[in-house]
Design a protein around this nucleic acid. Structure first.
Length: 586
RNA sequence: GAGCCCGUAGCUCAGCUGGCUAGAGCACUUGACUUUUAAUCAAGGGGUCCUGGGUUCGAGCCCCAGCGGGCUCACCA
């Protein structure tokens, strides 16, 4: 393996650290009792400002002004006292007359400020008995000031020349160690929290423990006070292939995954509170049922039989309803052997839930409550900005039937049309169709082409044609329709639900219709699952079922525009480079 | 699967109409400075210009093929 110059230097530093008698990869745990975010400079300055008000009874505006001025002059009061304009604006209680003729407090501003500062930091220091222990990556040093990055952010360290070590010998040893630190090394620091003359909350290092060497240089991303970023690490390919680097140097990326995690846990909490059971069903399935999609195929050696990675878990969850559970749900990966783009990854996360004795009207209300709850838990509110549009997730959501929606956006009433008439409509609207498409698929094409993109605010589209929905119950009043809804947000489907079909005779007939579609060349037509039919024959209660695309919802709630941004490790083409390295090293 | 664009130092990027030994900032090394707030000063090192062919006296640049990526479209959630 070819090492770059910087990698060679780091390996040399590793050796030098060993030579100094430090273990660069120690086994011992390091107790962390403080995180960078526990006190930020902003929090400190706000507390300090309040403290200034309290101890001397000056107004909030003066307190802020005094603070700013003192930070700017590095905490030295002399230049401020000479500045008449400033001293006039910041009144201080007991007055005396200075040489310049202006009446001022007898207390030097330095002391006044120092007192307030001590009080402001006291709250944090007290908990920790004066010192804290913090660990993270060393992220560079300028003079005695170093940056330490932990999982919550960064904090400044002050590493004085002779502050670490008890004896002269030890001090020498630590001085050398500090010089050998590379950006990215893990260190632990024990020291007290203080604020520098410029007001930055820092830790005065009194002990340093080396915790882990970094042998590869990280990309250096710099940020100034206004938040401008220099030399950003932005190439999507590198960010996805080396997500660990992305997460290290672009800490804002963490927030996306934090939101994703909160989304899933909030949804789980919502369901668990209703008493519904979280379950797991097979990923490896002999028949890939429950959805229209092309599967991944694999092979089991012992059984010597083909198996498919699941494209859906619907038929298994319904078997559990047959088995007597009242509500079951599963959050898990589905696998579809189809195209990849910014909204499709070969494996994706779906949530499916089935609740007995309910129908799709009930489900619409449940979904509204669930999504509203989840949105609040993730973002703190119900309004979410996405691609510059405000989306309001507070229920109830608008409901439109499929036919109403098409009529609204095309002015064509297709509710009474047969297949031939629908083909004519498609032609008129310049929608491409082919011979394999049945009536349901044609309607779906018109909807997808003319309606979908317009559905920005959460909207239920209800009552689908029977042909495109083989697992849903026939509509209670409308001939040729099923009781199904999909939830659209920002022009994309994020949820799909039915009053589930529980009539085994009807279900068998629907599967047979699917087989006929398959014969016409529809590659995605559903396969017939005899065991599932047998389960239905034993009897399934009326049930409503729902599926939600978790990745899509995560995109909406974190304002991301590609699925790759909400997956830690999106699927990528293999890259030759790494293999070559292995070959060269052998 | 189709179209357009891209691939140059560890990172971000220049590189003219094909023409000297391929550049800058950060990062790295050495020295000075214990200081601040992306960036102190000075000096230095670092390159398979994605790969393979071709055209040419000469290719980072032009042509062909391939690999990888991004965006848009089509299918799917």
């Amino acid at each position: 393996m070819q090492l770059s110059e910087q990698e060679i230097v780091r390996r040399e530093n590793l050796q030098k650290i060993k030579d100094l008698g430090f273990n660069p990869f120690p086994a011992e745990a390091f107790e962390v009792d403080f995180h960078s975010s526990e006190i930020t400079t902003e929090q400190y300055q706000a507390t300090l400002s309040q403290t200034l008000e309290q101890i001397k009874g000056i107004g909030p505006e003066q307190a802020v002004k005094l603070m700013d001025a003192l930070f700017k002059s590095r905490g030295k009061s002399a230049p401020l006292l000479a500045d008449e304009a400033f001293t006039k604006e910041v009144p201080i209680t007991e007055t005396v007359t200075f040489a310049n003729g202006v009446a001022r407090s007898p207390m030097p501003l330095d002391d006044f400020f120092a007192e307030a500062r001590e009080l402001a930091l006291g709250a944090y220091a007290k908990d920790k008995k004066g010192t804290v222990q913090i660990a993270g990556r060393f992220m560079g040093q300028r003079g005695p000031f170093a940056k330490l990055q932990d999982s919550y952010g960064t904090i400044q360290l002050y590493i004085g020349k002779n502050d670490i070590g008890d004896t002269e010998e030890e001090k020498e040893r630590y001085k050398k160690l500090v010089k050998l630190l590379d950006i990215g090394d893990f260190i632990g620091v024990r020291g007290e929290v203080f604020a520098t003359g410029t007001g930055e909350v820092s830790i005065h290092a009194r002990e340093l423990i080396f915790l882990g060497k970094s042998l590869r240089p990280l990309p250096i991303v710099k940020r100034d006070k206004e938040g401008n970023v220099y030399d950003a690490f932005t190439d999507p390919e590198q960010r996805y292939r080396q997500r660990y680097v992305d997460l290290t140097v672009n800490p804002q990326i963490r927030n996306i995954f934090l939101k994703r995690s909160r989304l899933i846990s909030a949804m789980r909490r919502f369901f668990d509170r209703q008493g519904w059971l979280e379950v797991e069903t097979p990923v490896l399935q002999p028949i890939h049922g429950g959805a229209a999609a092309r599967p991944f195929r694999t092979h089991h050696n012992t059984l010597d039989m083909p198996l498919y990675l699941r494209i859906a878990n619907e038929l298994y969850l319904k078997r559990l309803i047959v088995g007597g559970f009242e509500g079951v749900y599963e959050i898990g990966k589905m696998f579809r052997n189809e195209g990849m783009d910014r909204t499709h990854n070969p494996e994706f996360t779906s949530m499916e839930i089935y609740v007995a004795y309910k129908d799709y009207y009930w489900m619409m209300e449940m979904v509204e409550q669930c999504i509203e709850y989840v949105t609040k838990e993730v973002t703190g509110g119900t309004q979410v900005e996405y691609e510059g549009k405000m989306i309001n997730f507070a229920g109830p959501y608008k409901r439109l039937t499929m036919f109403e929606a098409i009529e609204q956006y095309t002015s064509i009433d297709i509710s009474e049309m047969d297949e031939a008439a629908l083909r004519a409509v498609c032609k008129k609207l310049h929608i491409e169709v082919d011979e394999s498409m049945g009536k349901g698929k044609l309607i779906d094409e018109i909807f997808g082409e003319k309606v979908e993109a317009n559905l920005i605010q959460p909207t239920y589209i209800i009552d689908y044609p029977i042909e495109m929905t083989p697992l849903a119950k026939k509509h209670r009043t409308q001939e040729g329709l099923v009781e199904r809804f999909e939830l659209f947000v920002n022009g994309k489907e994020i949820a799909n639900a039915y009053s589930e079909l529980n009539d085994p005779i009807d279900q068998r007939a629907r599967f047979e219709d699917q087989l006929r579609l398959a014969e016409r060349g529809d590659e995605e037509a559903m396969a017939l699952d005899d065991d599932f039919l047998r389960a239905l024959e034993y009897g399934m209660p009326p049930t409503s079922g729902l599926g939600i695309g978790i990745d899509r919802l995560a995109m909406l709630l974190s304002n991301q525009h590609s699925i790759q941004e909400v997956l830690f490790f999106p699927q990528m083409r293999p890259k030759a480079e790494l293999h070559e390295h292995h070959e060269n090293s052998e």
